[in-house]
Design a binder for these strands. Structure first.
Lengths: 250, 250
DNA sequence: AGAAATCCTTGATGTAGATCAATCCTGATG
DNA sequence: CATCAGGATTGATCTACATCAAGGATTTCT
């Protein structure tokens, strides 16, 4: 399938000499509208676990993640929670034209965001079609990711869910650091067991048990609670239930 | 929450004197680029159950549903299927800039689509920012819907899932026909039990059983297998697990 | 009208994952 | 160094939903 490949290309893109330093808003790193953007941006930092906005709260900015990881979640009245977005560096937050947040936004790790006040940002969008196009592209990517996620939530077993999540994180992480593969892959899990369970629609106990099983079977190796190495990525991929072609770093 | 309201506004919009006859592409029904669109469009019809494209097949057009209902689904190698999109009249199909379909597209009922060959359509998009903006708006709506759907798949019980699906269809249907409420609501279910199960991440047996339970409890009334009336919409809403405010037809 | 598809319902039984409940790390704090 | 707190693990048990299996109701074809 092409989707896996797509998300990799997306995160691979290096934007280091763009003044905003990430591709969320600037598609090509060349136009000089960027300077105008530069003028209306500001940074905010959040600690791991901190809430950025609650669902329903007013939100007068849009933002993009610079470093760290943020999540979007929905909560039911009785407290059941489902994560609906996992935002990595360069991902975009907020919907132009909407005044309040539809989701709880939480910093999963220490996080820095690059914010733009909504009004000036929307003005810019009108003037520079570039940005709207970029946003459309990113939104379509997110929609594809959401649909893959729906398959996971609706049809995969607990084991497949865990394997899928690990490969998703490993892939994104690998492409960010460009520290790709020689079969083996290693990274820090940015999510607690609880956050994983909210991503996967499971309980944290089930997550823990399945992680243990994968460890016992040698599909993953753990150092401490958070550092994971995947000795054989393809073998783990087989456990995800996804089409095998997958195309890692193609 | 605002989302429910959003989707209603979306489907309420009457576009009857627009040459394309639906809001998927024309935002305002006023510009004369519409005439150009008019020139590159063509219609296709599908019978209930017919497949429009398979995942992975090349797809040289984008389209929008004129009448009927289409679905997007993903299939795993072993045959497990999850619906990931439910397309009603005026909804858009296909991703500009992608040559193949990422999903199985199926006609759930007899369906007519208004198609545009991809290349000319993309050319038009470049020339008329209008269309890109409209598409961004629609994609953001779809993303919100997908996220609501993720909550359903990940955290709701079978009963809540069924109640949610019924209210979703009732709402969209009501807003299309503008045949709103006096407490009671009535419509034809456009989905088989199997399609419902694919939407909800359940088996068709569980869907059937839960429908029976809701019927016995008087929350729904059925005539034949497909026609449903909801005597008290608010009472059904309470079974969805969603926030109660909801705002039906606000 | 009879046969044959479809689609739907209902029952009996099995099981993956939830729930309830201890216990264990590991790094922080006084 | 002892204590403590926030994760994480592991066990015992329960249950919602899946699975397997057998009819029933409608529509379509011959």
């Amino acid at each position: 399938m092409t989707r896996a490949t797509t998300s990799i290309k997306t995160y691979n893109q290096d934007c280091s000499d763009c003044p905003i330093r990430h591709r969320a808003v600037c598609a090509r790193c060349e136009s000089d509208e960027l300077e105008r953007l530069e003028q209306i941006k500001y940074y905010r930092s959040f600690e791991a676990g901190q809430t950025v906005v609650w669902a329903g709260d007013s939100m007068d900015f849009v933002a993009s993640v610079v470093t760290g990881i943020a999540t979007l979640s929905q909560t039911m009245e009785d407290g059941r929670r489902q994560m609906v977005g996992l935002l990595l560096p360069s991902d975009f937050i907020g919907r132009p034209g909407r005044a309040t947040s539809a989701y709880d936004v939480t910093a999963a790790t220490d996080t820095v965001m690059c914010c733009f006040r909504k009004k000036p940002f929307e003005d810019m969008m009108l003037k520079t079609p570039h940005i709207g196009q970029r946003l459309l592209e990113m939104t379509l990517d997110e929609l594809d990711a959401a649909r893959e996620w729906m398959l996971l939530l609706g049809r995969k077993t607990a084991r497949e869910k865990i394997a899928s999540l690990l490969t998703i994180i490993a892939r994104r992480d690998a492409s960010l650091q460009l520290s790709a593969a020689d079969g083996e892959l290693s990274f820090d899990l940015p999510l607690t067991r609880e956050a994983m369970s909210e991503y996967l629609g499971l309980t944290l106990e089930t997550v823990s048990r399945q992680m243990s099983t994968l460890r016992k079977e040698g599909l993953i190796v753990t150092e401490g609670k958070r550092h994971i190495t995947i000795p054989d990525f393809d073998r783990l991929l087989e456990e995800t239930g996804d089409d095998s072609d997958g195309g890692f770093l193609v």
